[in-house]
């Protein structure tokens, strides 16, 4: 399944909860959740660990808006709005962790 996160990991527990619960599948980081995928942030180790069992994607326009397109961690794929739709269509279900 696809998990969609839109909150910063340092201001909200949504991503933390998602990583605790989701054992496989894919995660798409959008809006303020893109901060989780940037090098040097305090959540980086949690993301690295999760990459072993989950595919993680980031919505590029949201990363660019925040001035962090050059700080994306290795192993995370960038998608555009079309890619967002493809992810939703390719997964049998999805959950937005609001």
């Amino acid at each position: 399944m696809l998990h969609i996160i839109n909150k910063s990991p340092l201001g909200n527990v949504s991503l933390d909860s998602c990583l605790r619960v989701a054992k496989s599948g894919e995660i798409l980081l959008i809006e303020d959740a893109v901060y989780a995928a940037t090098r040097g942030n305090a959540f980086e180790a949690r993301i690295s660990e999760a990459l072993g069992r989950l595919k993680i994607h980031v919505l590029l326009p949201d990363l660019e808006a925040r001035g962090l397109a050059d700080r994306l961690m290795d192993g995370i794929s960038k998608v555009d709005y079309g890619g967002f739709v493809d992810l939703v269509a390719a997964n049998k279900n999805c959950q937005s962790w609001l």
Binding site: G11, Y35, L60, D62, A65, R66, G67, A69
Partner: peptide
């Protein structure tokens, strides 16, 4: 906290 991100250089919001 996350407020420091307001001052990050290089913000490009055309895509959003």
């Amino acid at each position: 906290d996350d407020g420091v991100y307001q001052l990050k250089k290089g913000q490009q919001t055309k895509g959003i």
